[in-house]
Simulated assay, not measured.
Amino acid sequence: MKRFLCGFLLLSSIVMAQEKATLLYFNDSHVIYPVVDKHGERGGVARAKTVIDKVREENKNTLVLQGGDLGGGVLFGAIYHGFPMIEAFNKIEIDISNFGQHEFDFGVTEARNLVNKSNFEWISSNLKESSGESFNKSKEYIVKQFGDLKIGFLGTTDGMSTTIQTTEIYQADIFKSIEENLNKLKKEKVDFIVLLTQSEPELNIEILEKFPEINSILAEEKSEKYNYVTYVGEKPIVSPQGNMGSIVKVEIIKENDGKISQNLSFIPLNNSVESDKELLKLENYYRDKLEKDLGIVIAEAKVKLDSGFG
Rank of each mutant, 00 (worst) to 15 (best):
S124Q: 06
S97I: 11
E278L: 13
S216D: 02
N98P: 06
K137E: 14
I237F: 04
G100Y: 05
M1H: 07
I169E: 01
E188R: 14
H81F: 07
M85E: 14
P212M: 01
E133K: 15
F26L: 12
E206R: 12
V250E: 11
E41S: 14
W122M: 05
G7K: 07
A78R: 04
G233R: 07
T162Q: 12
A219Y: 08
F146W: 11
V303Y: 12
K38V: 13
E209T: 05
V297C: 03
S138H: 04
N119G: 10
K91L: 14
Q18S: 12
L5W: 02
N271I: 00
V74I: 15
E278Q: 14
N119C: 02
L65Q: 11
H81W: 04
A299V: 10
N126R: 07
H30S: 13
R47V: 09
G43Y: 07
R47A: 11
K2N: 10
Q145D: 11
I164W: 02
G44Y: 13
Q241G: 00
E180Q: 08
L195E: 06
E110I: 07
I260M: 08
K210Q: 03
V248I: 11
F266Y: 10
Q101A: 13
L269C: 09
Q101T: 08
K225Q: 09
L23F: 09
K176S: 14
I298V: 15
D257Y: 04
G71C: 09
D28E: 12
E19N: 15
P268I: 08
T166K: 07
V273W: 03
F266K: 05
T50L: 12
P240L: 06
N181W: 05
L11M: 10
D95K: 12
N263V: 14
S124V: 05
I217P: 02
N204I: 03
E209H: 10
G258Y: 02
N256T: 05
K128G: 07
E188I: 05
E213R: 03
Q241A: 04
I247F: 09
E200P: 00
F175R: 01
S138K: 10
Y226T: 02
S246C: 08
F4E: 10
W122Y: 15
